[in-house]
């Protein structure tokens, strides 16, 4: 259920990091890293992503 990043679509703008209320996402130089144990499945990252690279995984 935690958020997933599609690294091919991703443009590394950092928007998902900037809105994540749980501090679960970090942006390395060209890699989005999601700490699944912190993710609260709120979907803020999905909403802000300009290219549709973030998804909430279905169970």
């Amino acid at each position: 259920m935690p958020a997933k990043n599609d690294s091919e679509k991703c443009c590394y703008c950092g928007g998902c990091v900037g809105v994540c209320p749980a501090g679960a996402i970090t942006l390395e130089e060209t890699r989005i890293v999601i700490d699944e144990s912190k993710c609260i499945n709120c979907g803020a990252c999905v909403k802000i992503c300009p290219v549709g690279a973030m998804k909430l995984e279905k169970e």
Partner: peptide, 10 residues
């Protein structure tokens, strides 16, 4: 942290 209505996606 930014709230969703306080951030623009460009």
């Amino acid at each position: 942290v930014n709230k969703l209505n306080d951030i623009d996606s460009g």
